[in-house]
């Protein structure tokens, strides 16, 4: 009994602390940024992501940063890595490094945009369900069940037919399937936080619902949100290759990391470079996103700041 009271007191005190910290004149963004600057891992992963984005932007502008054109064929087919072709060549004698760099422009942008879509739609949907609860929650969650159940492939083929090939089609298709997980996570977190004392306090203080969600609820659910969003990146990069397969994605000879991996995996035992290098790039990208996500989560957590 006594213990419980102490616990409760501790908790309320801690929450009050958190709340008061939001009201400081220094903006939350600045605090987080300062926090990130202090963590070397965050900075390394940030710079890797930055470089990758830069490379993909450059190839969007058509600047020649690759040793060869991505579709330039040659007689040197299926060569292993060498001085002339750092990552070897494929079945048509095209330079793999150039193709990977060219492919980054689609893969990186798809990864980022899908993650963003998953974040915005998923968080909004989940927040409404979790905050309102009751009938609305029930209705919205049955909507998620329906969206989960519909056969993805069929939906994607249809989008391909309706929208035609090209980036919009890919984005719509991937956006449509990526938000449900985030929505369910956010909803669960909010249902749990709903009845914590500090929320009741905010409610009785007459604060506006949107304000409560944005300022009090979401920051406390930031951990799972970041995990879900960083996971949307690799799954979008890889799913894009499936889309190419059903004719929704890229028009050959264009390529992405996903299609390179899909085309290369049968050569695992004969020409491993065809699967190794595309996978390596996906791996590095995903690792950077995860590490950066971790650092971001830590920066959001007021108590781990002094660790």
């Amino acid at each position: 009994m006594n213990n419980n009271a102490i616990e409760l007191a501790h908790e309320v005190f801690a929450k009050a602390n958190v709340c008061s910290s939001w009201q400081r004149p220094v903006s939350i963004g600045a605090i987080i940024w300062q926090q990130l600057l202090k963590t070397p891992v965050a900075m390394i992963s940030f710079w890797i992501i930055f470089t990758l984005v830069l490379i993909s932007l450059l190839s969007f502008l058509g600047l020649a940063i690759t040793p060869y054109a991505f579709d330039q064929t040659s007689a040197d087919i299926l060569q292993g890595p060498s001085a002339t072709h750092l990552m070897g060549t494929d079945e048509l004698g095209r330079d793999l490094l150039s193709r990977i760099i060219y492919g980054s422009r689609l893969s990186i942008s798809i990864g980022l945009i899908t993650a963003l879509t998953a974040f915005i739609i998923g968080t909004t949907y989940g927040a409404i369900a979790g905050f309102c609860g009751g009938k609305i929650d029930s209705l919205l969650m049955r909507g998620v069940d329906i969206a989960y159940s519909l056969p993805d492939l069929l939906v994607m083929i249809l989008i391909g037919v309706l929208v035609g090939r090209g980036t919009q089609g890919i984005l719509i298709a991937l956006g449509l399937v990526s938000w449900m997980g985030t929505a369910r996570l956010v909803r669960a977190e909010l249902l749990q936080l709903q009845h914590e004392e500090f929320i009741d306090a905010a409610k009785t203080a007459g604060q506006n619902s949107v304000w409560i969600i944005l300022k009090h609820l979401l920051p406390n659910a930031v951990g799972p949100i970041i995990v879900a969003v960083t996971f949307a990146v690799p799954s979008a990069i890889l799913s894009e290759s499936t889309l190419s397969f059903i004719g929704l994605g890229l028009s050959p000879p264009e390529c992405s990391w996903g299609t390179l991996a899909l085309d290369g995996w049968h050569s695992l035992r004969t020409h491993p470079h065809l699967i190794f290098f595309p996978s390596l790039f996906i791996f590095i990208t995903v690792l950077s996103f995860n590490l950066f996500g971790d650092a971001l989560r830590d920066a959001f957590d007021p108590k781990s700041r002094n660790l």
Binding site: T73, I246, G247, S251, P252
Partner: peptide, 29 residues
Amino acid sequence: KLVMEAIQDQLKRNLNINIELVNQEWKVY
């Protein structure tokens, strides 16, 4: 896909004409 890419490449080099490759899922095709 490889065969189509090779043909596209040859027509570009030999005749300077551009072919757009369009792939579709089997039944849609």
